[in-house]
Amino acid sequence: MSYTGPEFDSPAPRRSRRGAMTVAVAALVPGALLGWLVYEAVGDTGGPGQGRTEAKAPSTTRPAPSPASPSPASPSSASPSSTGGRPAPDASAPDALRGKVVVIDPGHNPRNFQHTAEINRKVDIGTAWKECDTTGTATNAGYTEAEFTLDVARRLRTVLQQQGATVKLTHNGERAYGPCIDERARIGNEAGADAVVSLHADGSGAGNRGFHVILPASVHAGAADTRPIVAPSRELGERIAGSLVRVTGSAPSNYVGGGTGLVTRQDLGGLNLSTVPKVFIECGNMRDSKDAALLTGGAWRQKAAQGISEGIVSFLRG
């Protein structure tokens, strides 16, 4: 199922003059359609092995064709993230997250490029050995993913702390490089986090647009055992995806996830080694000029932080 957001809409047809009542009714339709499409957008996941790799290389995946328009879901097929008509938890309440621990993981590090030997060192991710960390991607104008993720992480921390959460960042730009992907997972585990969110931006081809949330697959090998966190991580991801659509107006990815904004992966050490609910978020594609214009704007990054926080609140409050 595909969602067409405000940034993707075709030009509206010319309006006919039919009187005030017709105009008023017509004005209600986009809002109602958007609400239904947001509900539908979080109801399924794409297949494994799509989107990000921790050794970040630009993707050459072509945009997937939009599937046929779906029929409305029946109550029995409703997503766990659906509120069923109930109002969403108030994410602005000062005590909304009192007693909860949230770990925010800003992907990469602005100084990783100065420490190539260190970040290329291999670490055990349970199922394989992968590089400690990577430099990440950047916009065509040179705004780096590491700068982006650190900025959004700080904004998100402020919003969550205002709601009473105890918030820990895996790093705050103070480190020379890293931390390595196994340490990032360990920080969340040792904090006993109620939720962990790893922030990223993709480096796919031009024309590939939108965000996607990466969920852990069921992995049981070596040091990795994600089986206890698969279900709660999926719920966390679904709620964040729905909130991002609503708050930012951005659409789910048009190149992975089948229009749902959800992708399941089994090759990411940050997920494989986690023992607490955790998701990755690719907030957009830095190599697409339209997505890059959003990601480089402070106003959009603040909306992204707000949308992610509201998804976390919804998950933690049930």
Rank of each mutant, 00 (worst) to 15 (best):
306 Q>F: 02
198 S>H: 02
175 R>Y: 13
306 Q>V: 13
208 N>R: 06
256 V>M: 10
44 D>M: 07
86 R>I: 07
47 G>V: 13
249 G>E: 05
32 A>Y: 10
311 G>R: 03
258 G>H: 06
44 D>K: 07
214 I>P: 01
50 Q>G: 04
30 P>C: 13
284 G>M: 10
200 H>G: 04
166 T>A: 08
90 D>C: 05
223 A>G: 10
300 W>Q: 14
183 E>G: 00
133 D>C: 08
300 W>C: 11
173 G>M: 06
48 P>L: 11
85 G>R: 08
25 V>W: 10
318 G>T: 04
64 A>C: 07
9 D>I: 08
288 D>F: 00
257 G>P: 11
3 Y>L: 15
74 S>A: 13
177 Y>D: 08
19 G>N: 12
15 R>S: 15
120 N>K: 14
127 T>G: 08
190 E>P: 01
121 R>M: 15
262 L>C: 08
128 A>L: 09
153 A>S: 13
149 T>H: 06
221 A>K: 11
255 Y>A: 11
224 A>Y: 05
235 E>Y: 01
158 T>M: 09
116 T>N: 11
56 K>S: 15
237 G>A: 06
287 R>C: 06
176 A>C: 09
110 P>A: 11
187 I>M: 02
284 G>N: 11
191 A>D: 03
188 G>I: 00
35 G>R: 12
146 A>T: 08
131 E>R: 13
166 T>F: 00
153 A>G: 12
299 A>G: 13
315 F>Q: 05
189 N>V: 06
110 P>I: 13
130 K>E: 15
30 P>L: 13
12 A>N: 10
190 E>A: 10
199 L>D: 02
199 L>F: 03
175 R>E: 15
232 P>M: 04
153 A>E: 13
106 P>L: 09
10 S>T: 06
3 Y>N: 03
13 P>F: 12
217 A>P: 04
298 G>D: 14
134 T>L: 06
66 S>G: 12
136 G>S: 12
226 T>L: 03
177 Y>W: 14
297 G>N: 15
129 W>G: 03
249 G>W: 00
184 R>E: 05
269 G>F: 03
239 R>S: 01
1 M>G: 04
127 T>M: 09
153 A>L: 14
224 A>D: 05
175 R>I: 05
253 S>Q: 11
76 S>P: 00
66 S>V: 13
60 T>K: 09
1 M>Y: 02
64 A>H: 07
186 R>E: 11
146 A>C: 07
156 L>K: 01
128 A>F: 11
62 R>V: 14
122 K>V: 07
199 L>S: 05
248 T>N: 06
97 L>W: 00
189 N>G: 04
129 W>I: 03
255 Y>I: 06
264 T>Y: 02
233 S>Q: 08
88 A>Y: 04
149 T>E: 11
149 T>K: 06
